[in-house]
């Protein structure tokens, strides 16, 4: 055939969500606002400002964060996700939602299993992990009818976990990779628990000056005082129980399933195939394919 023929060359498609500098800008801004929305009870005393309206603050942020989450999602998905990444996101969100026990969506972060989120972030890159954090929590809330003011906070925290997992150093592999992911799993389990507690701590335990309980948030009290109170609150309510349970299940799942599941996920990226009858006889070309171990998002660029 002559080279003058129309020539269509499409590289093997990969699963991943590209993060441009615009998206990064929005991610950074929303992360700052998210941390502020979670950490204001401790932040204000630290900069020497006495918070006002403490009773209203949780409601203010409960109203504000949905808008911010929506803006971030709109920015990350802008320009359209390809159908392949979208379908994989949907299926993995469903798996994540199924892994969360039915009661988990009820209140702030009682229980969730992060292992697939971390592995997907690792396999498909930070953009995918970030988005999967949002969609997993949202899917779980929709499926268990658990939509509420806690949802944007959960979504944001889970998205941070997915993003971090995607940003871990690429070169690490083998046992070191697994160890790194397990460490990440344990850290995220406790951090997620503490952050979700921090969100609803002033909500459930705001003491009126006259009648403050000893675990309550005291607006205007020094940061050390409130930190102690929060420390005890979170230790007593969740760190000892739920969070440790979550850290254990996550790390156990990572140790046992980490490598095989990572292999399965990485296979889904970089294979161009429709479900056709004669796809199979393409044989073993996938072994050692260039996309097997590299960052799919980079590979696409």
């Amino acid at each position: 055939m002559s080279r003058a023929d129309p020539f269509l060359d499409i590289p093997a498609p990969v699963v991943g969500v590209r993060l441009g500098w615009r998206t990064w800008a929005v991610i950074v801004a929303s992360t700052a606002l998210g941390l502020f929305a979670l950490g204001w009870p401790l932040l204000f005393p630290a900069i020497g400002v006495t918070p006002q309206h403490t009773a209203d603050a949780p409601f203010v942020f409960a109203a504000l964060l949905p808008l911010v989450v929506v803006l971030v999602i709109a920015q990350v998905t802008e320009g359209g996700l390809d159908a392949r990444s979208l379908a994989v996101l949907g299926v993995l969100s469903a798996v994540n939602a199924a892994l969360r026990p039915a009661l988990g969506a009820g209140t702030a972060g009682i229980e969730s299993v992060f292992f697939l989120l971390i592995l997907a972030g690792r396999a498909f890159g930070p953009g995918f992990g970030y988005l999967l954090g949002f969609t997993s929590m949202f899917a779980s809330a929709l499926l268990t009818a658990g939509v509420g003011p806690w949802l944007p906070f959960q979504m944001l925290c889970a998205a941070w976990v997915g993003l971090t997992a995607g940003l871990l150093p690429r070169r690490v592999s083998g046992r070191a990779e697994l160890a790194m992911l397990v460490a990440m799993g344990i850290a995220s389990a406790y951090a997620y628990g503490a952050l979700m507690n921090l969100w609803f701590w002033p909500f459930i335990a705001t003491g009126m000056e006259s009648a403050a309980g000893s675990l309550d948030y005291l607006p205007g009290a020094p940061v050390a005082e409130n930190l102690t109170r929060f420390g005890w609150f979170t230790l007593l309510t969740s760190t000892g129980g739920w969070d440790t349970g979550r850290a254990l299940t996550t790390s156990l799942a990572l140790v046992v399933l980490g490598r095989p599941v990572l292999a399965v996920l990485r296979r889904a990226s970089g294979i161009g195939r429709v479900a056709t009858g004669d796809q199979g006889r393409r044989g073993s070309h996938l072994i050692g394919s260039p996309h097997g171990s590299s960052n799919p998002v980079q590979a696409r660029d």
Partner: peptide, 14 residues
């Protein structure tokens, strides 16, 4: 055009 747009690949001809 599912092949090669979706699957990836090289197509010549029209």
């Amino acid at each position: 055009n599912l092949v090669p747009r979706f699957t990836g690949g090289i197509r010549t001809g029209s």
